[in-house]
Nucleic acid binder design. Structure first.
Lengths: 117, 117
DNA sequence: CTTGCACCTCACGTCAACGTCAGGTTTTAG
DNA sequence: CTAAAACCTGACGTTGACGTGAGGTGCAAG
């Protein structure tokens, strides 16, 4: 599969895919003409990268954790870092939940006030 | 209270507080010498700003929503935006929860493998 | 009075994850 | 064979929330 198709299928930009390669997050073989060629598994890989980015991990962290996330094999250090990141995400969920609750209260108050008019 | 004390108490940098003022998120009176002077309520205000930033709102959005968040009064447009932001946060929580679950599985697998050694 | 810390205002630097443009090559459709 | 997509490699631009000096002022202590 070439880069344009992978981009359309996985919903990210062509530029992003090249960037992932530059960051060693995603590999590709090349055609004789020098164009990138991706296997079908690349789709899941890209999806995984997107998930980890969405979770707020940096590309540096992702490149460190991708091997064990996709293979299930990890050194103790990698396990530690996995736990650190999971806990960071959990903390972030707490923050977001607080903010959401706060906005929810505001919305309730405002709505109640508006009903009263 | 002066800026250094507010910074220490609320856990943000002096630079950040000046930035908040520049973005009209936070007000201050000035001493005759031109130094910023904050009332005690500024602490809660800063905390609120931090919460909303942590929730991924931009300073533009925060400056639009701060009045109704702190007063409870909002126009219909503001209410709409409040709901939009709350839903955005909810969606983000979903994403994070997915990523956390995924990392949790990886951690389980790796741990199980390590126990086996 | 002067030392020294806290504060002031510019104003440029940073960092990540791309966007975008330039100038050239490869592949595909007809 | 040719035109048009699609692709390639640089390389500079963008955005937000500050960091980081530079160069100068305010203020409490000894």
């Amino acid at each position: 599969m070439r880069i344009g198709q992978l981009a359309r299928r996985s919903g990210v930009s062509v530029r992003a895919l090249r960037y992932y390669e530059e960051q060693r997050l995603l590999e590709s073989t090349r055609t004789t003409g020098g164009q990138r060629d991706y296997p079908d598994e690349a789709m899941e890989r890209v999806q995984l990268i997107q998930d980890l980015f969405a979770a707020g991990l940096s590309s540096r962290t992702v490149v460190e954790l991708l091997p064990c996330v996709s293979t299930g094999v990890a050194t103790p250090d990698m396990l530690d870092q996995l736990i650190v990141e999971r806990d960071r995400i959990a903390a972030r969920i707490q923050d977001l939940t607080r903010a959401k609750t706060k906005l929810g209260h505001v919305i309730e108050n405002v709505s109640a006030a508006n009903v009263g008019r």
